[in-house]
Structure formats: C-alpha cells, structure tokens
Design a binder for these strands. Structure first.
Lengths: 254, 254
DNA sequence: ACAAAAGTGTTAGACCTACACCCATGG
DNA sequence: CCATGGGTGTAGGTCTAACACTTTTGT
C-alpha cells in the first residue's frame, strides 16, 4: 500500500482528520443497502416478470420484486444473484445494473433503505419455477397484469420495462429471451410484443439478417400445420468481432 | 397506512418475521453509502473535469472526485448536490445518475463503501472556482491529463467520459457546456473535441439546424479577425414539444 | 490586399419503407 | 384441397456523405 506511507506531520494530521471523519460517518450513517431485480421472461408469447410474495396468505395481494439486503463483504451484483437464486431458484442469463433508488428517503417505511435495482433476462429453458423454497412464492406475471407492489417497486419495474424496450433497438438482447435455436418468427413476435407495435416481416428479417450475427443451423422446426421454419442461432462471437470493427446493432423503427 | 392493517394471526406472524429479519440486517449490515460526481466543463476549448484534493500539501498528487458520505434522511441526488457545493462551490447545470460502484468490496480500503456516481455538466459562466472553502482545493483538469485518483475514481471517470460521448449523439446536452448564446462554431468544436474526430462543418450545421431547436438571436459576435458569427440559443421548450411528437435527437457519425 | 473565420448547395449512393404472392406442410 | 404459417424482391423516397468557394471582418 504505497499510498499509506506517511511523510510529514502535516500529512499525518491530514490523514488523521480523514479517518476521524470516516469514523464519525460510520457511527452516524444509518442507511441500509438493498438490491432488487426486475427479471423478464418470454412465456406464452407474453412478456412476463418474476415476482415474489410471502407464503403466508395473509398479506394479500402485495407482491414484490425479488431482492433483499446486501450482506457485509458481498458485492452488489453478487447480492442480486444470491437473492434471485434464494427466492426464485432462477439464474439470470443476462443481468445489468438499472438504477439506484434513493432520492425518496421513505421509500421503505421501516427505515432509510436505498435499492440498487438490476435488470435481468432469462431464457425459456429456465422459465419453470421450482416448487418454492423459503417463505416466499415466486410467480410470473404478464407485464400488463401486475398486481400491487411493495414500496416503489412499480416505479422500478416501469423503468426496467422502458430500458428493455429501448435496449432491444440497439443491443442484441432479444435472443436471451428465446430458445438457443429459434425460428425467425419467434424473434419477430418477441419484438412486436415488447415494443407493442407491428413490424414489417420482410424488412425486419432483412435487417436482422444483414447484421450477419445469426447462424442458420440447417435444422427445421415443424409444429402443427404450416411450412417448417429454419432454426437460427445467435452467434455471440461474430457479434463481438463486428463490435470491434465499429459495427453498431441498431434498428430504427421509431 | 392501509397496508399495515393486520387481519389474522398468520399475517401477524409473517409481519413479525419480516420485521425481525429487518432488525437483524440493521444491526449486522455495515455498508456505507457515498456519492461521487464527475463534473465536466468546457474550458479553453478543452474538455475538463473537476477534481479536489486535501489542502495539506502532504498527500501529494492523489486527487479525487468531489463527493462524500450520504447523510441520514438525505436523498442521493441531494447528497451529491450538497457535496459538490461544499467542496467546489459549483452547482451542476445538468446532473444524472451514472452507476453505482459496489462490486469490489474493498474499493475503499477503510471499510465497505458503495458509491453512487453522478455525471454532471456545468456551463462556462460558472467555470471560475471560488477561493477555496474547506479543507479541499478544487481544480479543473483536462481529460487527457488526469493525475492519480483515489480508490476506483479513475474507473468512474472513464465510465462518465464514455457516457458523455455517447449521450452527445442522442441527447442535446452539448449546449449545457456552452454559453447560453453561442456561435455555431463553438458547438462544432465542442463536438469534435469530445468525440475526438473531425466532422464535416456543412453537414453538421445542416443536421443540427434541421432539428429546429436552436433560435437565431439575431445578434452577432465579433472576435479578432474573421467574419462575425450569428449567435444561437438552445430552445428547450421547442425541444420538449418535439419530443412529445415522437422526435428523436440523433446524430449518426459512427 | 491578405489573413482569418463564417457561411452556403449539389450530387451520388445508401438505406428505409411500403407492399403481395408463392411455398411447404398437416389435416 | 384447404388452412396455416414461412419465405421472398422491388421501386420510390429520404437521408447521408463527400466535396470547395464566397462573404465579412481585422490588420
């Protein structure tokens, strides 16, 4: 720790002041740090969100985002992953920080708690929720049928939803919500569902294929009647190579 | 507080468990919350950043971002504003949350501290720093001559810099760094400085003017030789109207 | 009159948008 | 053979990108 070599009384004094101030804060600051996760899944052709609620039937229809307090000596993203796993048994395939909520001092009425919110996606292979663990139920809710949520969780959810919508247009994250091999029509309806608007099939396909980040697996998928569909797979390697060459994934359909 | 009406023993138990858990966390969680600000200014045709350092000459060349611990009963954004004001005497003209740093448990060697970082811009009217207050100096540093910084502040700064660069392309925030009335060439060189590349003057002007968010003040500015320049002003009202009509500020020069 | 900075238009190519029919399968 | 969903091309318009000379002032 070379920065801690002390050269003069002046410096010693300055450092001491610093440590004293820090001790004061340590004693006096009484703010708790929590993490919450907004996890999206694409189930039954609907955009759904993972919520939990206490097993006791009592607290009625108040649900909440998965999350909880960060432990000492635990990183923030480690904390969300742990809480998600504990409360829902799920591991997010994609996870990024969304925003930290802490302007409203009383968002949690019990005490001052700031919440670092995360935004996650999981693919259909994991959508099935295990018979529930702890003192919580976990369940999927379609984005337009969200019950009352604890604290400011609805605000968090809305922010995450907007982020998903805008991110879909400039980052290839839609694939995280589909099976690893998927027919093009799945991608199409996914985009339409999340963005809430119709897209021109031909133009959409042309656009996405022009990026050359999808591999044609050669396989076909037949379900019911109708012509069988080619199965594609997202090629993350190619995508990263392209990124290095200055490529920008970008879909303009404002 | 309608949510706190208790209907059954079952619910009472569940609530009690919840409160008990909370108390446990309150005692055991020992994480402190800080805020830090990366404030950009455009001075001498250079992109500069506001840094502070302890008045005692001792601690050499270790500078830091303005910031500090959040106080009890204080919101996060209120905390950054206060710290900025206390440490530098400056009020940001634009301020938004950047990211919360807390994955590295030991980013502050004294204890576990998470930092909610903010990203700010100030306009040239405020660039002059007052004779310094507290136990800190504040000073501007050009973005490419940043000294050693405390903790992970360099990482925070880099993130803020990237955010500024990308934000410049899809939000009209460049104006925050210029005088309220400015010649077009200022905007041009600002963009070139921040993005680090040359732009075609004619195309750039055409593009920006086509958005119709600049008012021509009719005034002219003469400095030294050369043809006097028209002065423009950013019209925030018009911009917001356009936003509501689905307009997107967007400059594609990848 | 010359140096310095501001202001201005056009054209070729790329990209976006709108639009309708045929194909492969299951029942 | 019909219903269902999958696959495909083109033309008109708009936006982008590349490019150089004239205007107004100070010295």
């Amino acid at each position: 720790m070379p920065n801690y070599f002390i050269e003069s009384a002046d410096e010693a004094y300055s450092r001491l002041a610093w440590v004293a101030y820090f001790c004061l804060m340590s004693i006096s600051q009484n703010i708790k740090v929590a993490v919450d996760a907004v996890v999206f899944g694409y189930v039954n052709k609907q955009l759904q969100i993972l919520l939990i609620h206490p097993k006791s039937e009592a607290s009625k229809d108040i649900w909440a985002l998965p999350g909880g307090f960060v432990r000492d000596q635990e990183g923030l993203s480690a904390a969300v992953k742990r809480e998600l796993e504990e409360e829902t048994g799920v591991q997010a395939d994609y996870l990024e920080q969304l925003y930290t909520f802490g302007d409203q001092v009383n968002r949690d009425p019990r005490a001052q708690v700031i919440s670092v919110a995360y935004f996650g996606l999981i693919n259909p292979e994991q959508v099935e929720l295990e018979a529930n663990t702890d003192a919580q139920y976990a369940a999927w809710f379609p984005i337009n049928q969200i019950p009352d949520l604890r604290f400011d969780h609805k605000k968090i959810l809305q922010m995450a939803h907007k982020r998903l919508q805008s991110k879909l247009l400039y980052q290839p994250i839609g694939f995280e919500l589909l099976h690893r091999e998927f027919p093009f029509s799945d991608l199409e309806t996914l985009y339409q569902t999340i963005l809430g608007k119709k897209l021109d099939r031909r133009n959409f396909r042309k656009k996405i294929l022009s990026f050359q980040i999808l591999d044609d697996t050669g396989k076909k998928q037949k379900i019911g009647s109708g012509r069988p569909a080619q199965l594609f797979r997202f090629n993350e390697l190619k995508y990263k190579e392209l990124l290095n060459k200055g490529f920008h994934f970008d879909i303009q359909f404002a």
